[in-house]
Amino acid sequence: MMEGLVKVSIDINGKKYTDDVEPRLLLVDFIRDIARLKGTHIGCDTTSCGACTILIDGMSVKSCTMFAVEADGRKIQTVESLATDDKLHPLQEAFWEHHALQCGYCTPGMLMSSTFLLSRNSDPTEEEIREGIAGNICRCTGYINIIKAVKDAAGKINAGKETE
């Protein structure tokens, strides 16, 4: 091991990625450059924009606020985990239905924040959705279609649960 490097092992979307990294390596760079999952984006350097939002052990986190070493041994979900077997997640379906994205750069972060929101609150009000994505900046859509999409997805997920 090179001097000063730290061995880090992170489970991302069910797959384990292990590497020797500098202690100052940001988690977002681990995800993008070492795990080579490019769906997680970088939009600022002040943890303001939310483009890099992921889930760590189910909690939403801006992956630029954390060092990779802090995520050692933990489980991470990124946008790439949402669709399974080519079937879109209900949030992805709803974002598509409502044209809740234009350039798509904020979308992965928006989806992860929304996933977290729905995991805590299965039937959020419009106000709660706005609160839930308050840390994610979108410069294209004006948010309205995103809010509609999250509301719609929540309804569909709940309807699905009832019929089960």
């Binding site: 999952l37 769906g39 946008v79 974002f95």
Partner: peptide, 19 residues
């Protein structure tokens, strides 16, 4: 018409410059 190319970034499959 629903925007077909929206499906790409929705799944984190887009390729932006830094990618």
């Amino acid at each position: 018409v629903k925007v077909a190319e929206d499906l790409i970034p929705l799944q984190g499959k887009g390729q932006y410059l830094d990618d």
